[in-house]
Design a protein around this nucleic acid. Structure first.
Lengths: 150, 150
DNA sequence: CAGATAAGTCAACATGGCTGACATAAAAAG
DNA sequence: CTTTTTATGTCAGCCATGTTGACTTATCTG
C-alpha cells in the first residue's frame, strides 16, 4: 500500500524532470506545460474548462496563459454561440513546443508500456482511474474517441 | 500513450489534494509531507540520503526540515560510525502527523487496488517502475514477484 | 432592463524551488 | 600531523506559481 504511494511519487518526479529542462530554455515552468498539453489535446476549449481541469484560480492561469498568448504559442478567438468565451488553440509554434515537451514523456511511457506488456498497461489504467476522485474527470478516459477531422 | 500521460496528471492531482488540506491546518505544505513520509519509511536516514531521494537542494530541504525539527515532528541525532551525519527520525508527534496525512492516500489507493483487482495492481506496479528513471530508486521496490511464466 | 456569467486585471502575499557564498565539524588522505 | 574532502547548516536573494480579494468589461439570460 505505502509502496504504491511511493511509486507514484517517484514516477511523477521522473516523469516531469525532462520536460522541465526543456521548459527552462523558454523561461517557462511546469504550469506552461500543463496549459500547452491540455489546449493541444482539446482545441477550442474555453478558459473556464481549462480552469476546471487544472483546479487553479483564473489569476494563476492568466499569468501563464497570458505569456503563452503574447509569445504566440496559443491563440484565442471569440466563441461562436457565446461570444464571451475565448476559445483556446495552439499555434504552429505552440504545437511544436507541445511536441518537444511531450516527446520525452511519450518515450518514457512507451518504454514502460513495452517493458511491462499489454496486460500490465490495462492494470495501470484501471488503478490510476480508481485513484482519480472526480467522476467527470474519470469519464475523460472512458474510451478513446477516434480523432475527428473537420 | 498521451492518455497514460494524462492519467498520471489527474491521479497525482487528486492523490495530493486531501493531504494538502490537512497540511494547511499546520501551516505546512507538500514539501513537509514528503519529508515526513520518507523519514517515517526510513528511520535513521541521513540528510544526504533524503536529499538524494527528493532531488532538491539542501537549502530547500533545510527550510522545511528545520521547521519540522523545531516544532518537534522530527528529531536528529549524531551518527554512530560517522558523527558528521544527522540521523533523522519521527517523534510520536511526527508519526501521528504522518498517519493523518497518509490516511486519505492509503484509503484512496486501497479502494483503487480493490476495485481494480490483483492483476491490475501488478500491472500498475510494473508500469510505474518502468517510468522511474533511476536504477537505485527502482531497487527500493524489490518485491516478491508472483509465479509467472514468460 | 436586471442580474448572472465568462473572462481579464491589479495588488499583495506565501510556498518552495533555485544559485552563490560561506561556516563548522569530522572523516579521510597524504 | 597536516591537508583535503565530506556532511551539514546557514544567510541572502531571485523566481515560478499558487492563493485571496476587489473590480471591470462584455455578453448572455430571464
Amino acid at each position: 500500500m505505502r509502496q504504491g504511494i511511493e511509486l507514484l511519487f517517484f514516477a511523477y518526479r521522473d516523469f516531469t524532470a525532462e520536460p522541465d529542462a526543456i521548459l527552462a530554455e523558454y523561461g517557462f515552468g511546469r504550469a506552461h506545460h500543463r496549459v500547452v498539453h491540455f489546449v493541444g489535446r482539446h482545441p477550442q476549449m474555453t478558459v473556464g474548462e481549462l480552469l476546471g481541469i487544472l483546479r487553479i484560480t483564473k489569476q494563476s492561469l492568466n499569468r501563464v496563459l497570458g505569456q503563452l498568448v503574447r509569445q504566440g504559442f496559443v491563440v484565442q478567438h471569440q466563441g461562436a454561440q457565446d461570444r464571451r468565451q475565448r476559445l483556446l488553440e495552439l499555434t504552429d509554434k505552440g504545437r511544436e513546443l507541445e511536441r518537444r515537451l511531450s516527446a520525452p514523456q511519450r518515450a518514457r511511457v512507451a518504454d514502460a508500456f513495452r517493458a511491462a506488456g499489454g496486460a500490465a498497461v490495462d492494470g495501470f489504467r484501471k488503478v490510476l482511474l480508481g485513484i482519480i476522485a472526480d467522476e467527470d474527470d474519470r469519464r475523460r478516459f472512458a474510451w478513446r474517441p477516434p480523432p475527428r477531422r473537420e
